[in-house]
Design a binder for these strands. Structure first.
Lengths: 250, 250
DNA sequence: GTCTATATTTAGATAGAC
DNA sequence: GTCTATCTAAATATAGAC
């Protein structure tokens, strides 16, 4: 009967420790001690360290992925109802807000999960790539599909890059390094989720639209990508840029 | 005389291994074996694992930081010469291109360094925060200072957030997870640095400018931030948004 | 399900020879 | 500067008692 939520306690401890120190930084001993059980019990329930790591993700990700898919659906339904193109900020809000809001939900253990996710995103190791492919790639594909509906002229070779930029920005916004507080000398509160969402959504929208402006050309053949995107010896950005709006007084 | 570049060989091996497996994933034994020396020699030269980790960064970062500062200076000098506001895309290009270009410079070991940097960025552990504070914070402050010259009306509590978004996007663009290739089904080449820069710079510029449009209001008192940025119960983004350009045909 | 005990490997660090 | 040898602690994993 004590076995009721022993697995849950082990997962809690493991999640906390993996988030703080990464996969290799954590030993099963630490997990066992933090959970108040023996090492062998951890191995009894999860067999290996890798499987424990994966289980930690699985528990949280089902909820958050459900949230994200539901919000994405709403955006699509709304656009059909209004017979309008899918709203870019709507998609981006559906993309960022479930994760960002959870990331600072202390009760739900969100801060800890956020840090796990932050590690996962840029980690090339097999244990991390495996989890990423299994749990985050399906959402990524769905999100990109809806983004394509919001920006139908954006090229297939451009949208994935923008998506990657967006994921990177979102992850950075919820990472618990405390850097934004340090760099802003206290003027930015890393825990103000409403502000994060309120800045991140327009930031990303502005980014997507600017790139779309650069690469879409009404009537241009799909087979003839804009020259600015081809690799050349010289940086394609410094020469002949379009959006140098910062120069003139707005 | 054999001691000539033994330190260099050790650093090369350590860099490679730290990039692949992270700080805790690497043992001094692995480093020693990869470098073809004994463990004690590694400890003779670098004393502790943490110091070795720091030395790995130090070697690369002096060059790249010099590059970045020089480019930032150029942007400022150019703006004074033209008696114009600092160019936003110029700052962003100075911000991203040294890192992105190095990140795919195989001869200079850039790919490896890029992965190290990607880990560092979102890692809350002491060994990582220490390196970040020591080597990347000074550049961050300088970059933000010049960004402020490009966007003088952007609030002090907003610009650091946008900077963090930008760092996250850049790091994601050079991370060696291969995800962009996977998600684009081969349509995006993770090694096409020219394209990365050509997309990332306008993406970030569009983001900064969109946020600036939202938060700057000519003549508005600095003490009275725009309401959209205050925390409220409801998402401040979904209601009353400004930039829903995706809706109407452009 | 949960534990103790233990086997085996590997970790970071030091001492001292050359 | 570079090595071998060795120390002590800690890792994962297994066997078997309760």
């Amino acid at each position: 009967m004590a076995g009721k939520d022993t697995k849950g306690k082990i997962l809690d401890s493991a999640e906390q420790l993996f988030a703080e120190m990464g996969f290799h930084g954590v030993s099963l001993r630490m997990v066992a001690e933090a959970a108040g059980v023996s090492i062998s019990l951890v191995q009894y329930h999860f067999a290996t360290k890798e499987q424990l790591y994966e289980s930690v993700f699985e528990r949280r990700i089902v909820t958050i992925n459900h949230d994200r898919l539901r919000k994405l659906d709403q955006v699509e339904v709304e656009s059909r109802r209004l017979k309008q193109r899918v709203d870019l900020e709507g998609v981006l809000e559906a993309f960022v807000s479930p994760t960002v809001l959870l990331a600072r939900d202390k009760e739900a253990g969100g801060a800890v999960y956020a840090q796990l996710l932050a590690q996962l995103t840029n980690d090339p190791q097999p244990h991390a790539r495996k989890v990423s492919r299994k749990y985050t790639d399906p959402i990524a594909r769905q999100t990109m599909r809806v983004l394509h509906e919001a920006l139908p002229d954006m090229d297939d070779s451009v949208l994935p890059w923008c998506y990657v930029f967006a994921v990177g920005a979102m992850i950075a916004s919820i990472s618990t390094t405390g850097r934004v507080g340090l760099l802003s000398e206290g003027k930015c509160d890393p825990d103000d989720v409403q502000k994060i969402v309120a800045l991140l959504v327009p930031f990303l929208a502005g980014g997507f639209e600017r790139v779309a402006e650069l690469t879409d050309h009404a009537g241009r053949s799909k087979d003839e990508p804009a020259q600015v995107l081809n690799s050349r010896g010289k940086s394609p950005v410094t020469g002949g840029r379009k959006g140098a709006r910062g120069q003139d007084k707005r």
